[in-house]
Amino acid sequence: MKLLQLSPSDLRHQLAGNGVWLRTGPFSLRIRSRLPRVAEGLTELYGQFEVRSAHQAFADFHVELNPPSRLRRWFRPQVNFSFDGAQPFKPLPLDQAYPMLEWGLNWCVSMHAHHYLIIHAAVVEKNGLAAILPAPPGSGKSTLTAGLVLSGWRLLSDELTLIDRRTGLLHALPRPVSLKNQSIDVIRQFSPEAFINRVSHDTAKGSVAHMRPPRDSVLRQHEPARPGWVIFPKWEAGAETQLTPRSRAETFMFLAENAFNYSHLGADGFRVGTTLIDHAHCYDFRYSALSEAVAAFDRLAERRAA
């Protein structure tokens, strides 16, 4: 059953009670929360995802978002993220409840799923080949990811590149795309059909909102992709759209440094990482206009398909 088939009151009721069991890519979650904002965020963004009653099901991650204490209910209300009873983060203002769920889920995956090599990068796919987009915050990675998935590329993830250690394939975790500050308006203008949820202001990352993942990406979430490219995007005001090849060795080093668990995997991390780099074309990419950037990516995909 899909989440959108649950009535809003049923969803709220289950979240406040036993919790909702939800599948996102290779992971299952059990989410509990009494907060209306969390229910609202899930309804708006996770409609296409599979849900079950949480009773008696196995879930990878048991998470809870609730106010830390009843006392703070009226005075500067807060929200706490719990991972099976443990609180890995300090509480945040209640307004940030929904982004906190997304950040918390990223933490769950990156701290535990060591059967993957996990790199901090977005991944999108076309014609079976995936483009990995690693980049420091502020480089326009999320904006580009959102633009691409609104233009026919499939979303694998906007934050976590999951590389299967046995097969070297990339697994999809097509959760909502996080948009920050100006990129929220850029994407609204780029595609009026895109659904973006309410903005949380004054977070550690500025203003944050989440874009609903395309339906097709969610329906195909169990379909892995082969690594095709590693592309470092950089948004620069007024820049020409420009793709420049970069060295594989340097790219590998960057990926290793930006992996969440490279050092945990020992020699196997090196093997998985170098195998991936051997199959990928590596580029630096500068852009200012999102539509031109998308066109450049489409040309890359056509060239590899030919």
Binding site: S28, F58, D60, A113, H114, H115, H264, L265, G266
Partner: peptide, 15 residues
């Protein structure tokens, strides 16, 4: 569905 939890922990312990 549960196996990866054990494998991932074993990876960490070995490391």
């Amino acid at each position: 569905v549960a196996r990866w939890h054990f494998d991932a922990a074993a990876t960490l312990a070995a490391k």
